[in-house]
Design a protein around this nucleic acid. Structure first.
Length: 495
DNA sequence: AAAAAAC
């Protein structure tokens, strides 16, 4: 054969035979849990992160999607908590010693599952806390005593107010998807949470993407951090094949069903930029006989979890999602991701397509783009430092309801039958809404702006070590200076 | 300009 044996280029999601988990001095109880799952060799990010976290250092960790960041921080945290017995005089038998924050509920759930699996042979206990679920079971779990809490910010603060959680002994803070946790939407809550933690603690931040601005902001939360970078941040995994199809806005929906049919996809996530768009596309696909379901923030938590679970089970073949599903979710053997819309943030593109091609597997990322989102495309290509291959959607003939509208009445009638009637009915019912869903001008996402206030190192207020003991107004600690308090409550946007 | 995250 003319085949040249490819050189041994390490794939970030794959492991190398040189190193074993057993080499890190992890407890036999942890190693046993890894053996249970068939893990012997660490991935590069794990190989680098585990020793540094074990040293007790702050970490800023960047590695491509699907390369095992969760184990990279979970394993050494479990080891640290095992090694350093709790010597505190706290009345709580099991004060929270490690806190892991995530930007979505489903991700919190998934990380919690991993932590549980890795710590199953240890005496350590963990629980997950997020919104949209009954408080009572979470309160019960917290009261029974847990060393590790995985949480989304809002519900965690809710527990703080209810005094059902005490974070005054928390020595380790992890921000998973750290750049998202530090964006404007999350920062005020994050700041409130940090104010409740001991000032002396270990901070770990992990993400596949870090913009320059966010890196600076992140640094202000870290003490003498060790930067761990496996490949450049913002890089896409190179085992994911990326392609672009140019279509008109009207053709998008049918292009999606065409691609699904043509490729025979039985497991694909389709990303929409809006909740309404995700719901509509799912309905559209279901009407075409596709086993599709939508997941987004306007659905109940029960619906969200049911949709994700059904997708994982294969009962649902197409999961139409907003960016709620863009980050962190690990879905085994997902072969393909479709961007129905190009994301507004270039970083989200990296995360979305990172749902496929995990753990070294191959994956395809297909993006639809229109004339209107040329700007988004440029930003994405600039950030990932790659040109994405443009292809023609060969064989695709749009038969969308929109085109049907513009056809001559006779031609429309020709299509006749039940199918034609159904389309007409649907057109009338959703025409208005559909039109409002269409972009009318090109999007110009603003440059990322970080308020200078947050660039200053934060001085915790005197109440920092005492978790909102007297806060009755449902807000942050009571001794914050007025100006700072205003900022904490979101006032920074007014300056 | 949108999504996420508490009730």
């Amino acid at each position: 054969m003319t085949d040249i044996k490819s050189p041994a280029i390490p794939v970030p999601g794959q492991t190398t035979p040189d190193v074993k988990f057993a080499d890190f001095g992890l407890s036999p109880d942890i190693l046993r849990a890894l053996t249970d799952q068939g893990y012997v060799h660490p991935t590069p990010i794990q190989e680098q992160a585990i020793p540094v976290v074990l040293q007790g250092r702050d970490v800023m960790g960047a590695a491509q999607t699907g390369t095992g960041k969760t184990a990279g921080f979970s394993l050494p945290i479990i080891q640290l908590l095992l090694a350093h017995a709790n010597t505190s005089a706290s009345p709580a038998r099991h004060p929270v010693r490690a806190l892991i924050l995530t930007p979505t509920r489903e991700l919190a759930d998934q990380v919690a599952e991993n932590v549980k699996a890795y710590s199953r042979h240890t005496p350590l206990r963990s629980t997950v806390v997020f919104g949209g679920m009954d408080m009572a079971p979470q309160v019960a779990a917290l009261r029974s005593g847990v060393e590790i809490v995985i949480a989304t910010p809002g519900r965690l603060l809710d527990h703080v107010q209810q005094k059902t959680i005490n974070l005054s002994q928390t020595q380790i803070l992890v921000m998973d998807e750290a750049d998202r946790m530090l964006d404007m939407g999350f920062l005020p809550d994050l700041q409130r949470i940090i104010n409740l933690l001991p000032k002396k603690r270990q901070n770990l931040m992990f993400s596949a993407t870090f913009s320059q601005e966010i890196k600076k902001l992140a640094a202000s939360f870290l003490t003498n951090p060790q930067t761990i970078e496996v490949a450049r941040s913002n890089a896409t995994a190179d085992n994911v094949t990326q392609i672009l199809y140019k279509v008109s806005t009207e053709e998008k929906r049918d292009a999606v069903s065409f691609i699904i049919r043509e490729r025979g996809l039985k497991q694909v996530i389709v990303f929409s930029n809006t909740k309404i768009g995700a719901s509509r596309l799912a309905v559209h696909l279901v009407k075409q006989g596709v086993k599709a379901s939508a997941i987004h923030g306007d659905k109940s938590q029960q619906e969200r979890m049911a949709a994700l679970e059904a997708f994982k089970q294969g009962e649902v073949e197409v999961l139409v999602a907003t960016d709620v599903a863009a980050r962190g979710l690990d879905i085994a053997e997902l072969p393909c991701v479709i961007n129905f819309d190009l994301p507004y943030n270039a970083e989200d593109y990296v995360h979305r397509i990172g749902r496929t091609g995990r753990a070294g597997a191959k994956g395809d990322a297909i993006s639809l783009h229109t004339d209107q989102d040329e700007r988004l495309l440029i930003d994405i290509e600039k950030m990932i430092k790659q040109k994405i291959v443009r292809l023609n959607l060969a064989g695709f003939v749009a038969t969308s309801v929109h085109q049907a509208e513009h056809r001559a009445p006779r031609e429309r009638a020709d299509r006749g039958g039940e199918r034609g009637a159904e389309r007409t009915e649907r057109t009338e019912r959703t025409d208005r809404a559909d039109r409002s869903d269409r972009p009318t001008r090109s999007f110009q996402p603003p440059r990322e702006k970080i308020d200078p206030w947050f660039l200053k190192p934060y001085e915790p207020s005197a109440s920092a070590a005492t978790p909102v003991a007297d806060a009755t107004d449902g807000k942050a600690g009571t001794t914050a200076k007025p100006q700072r308090k205003a900022a904490l409550l979101g006032g920074f946007s007014k300056t």
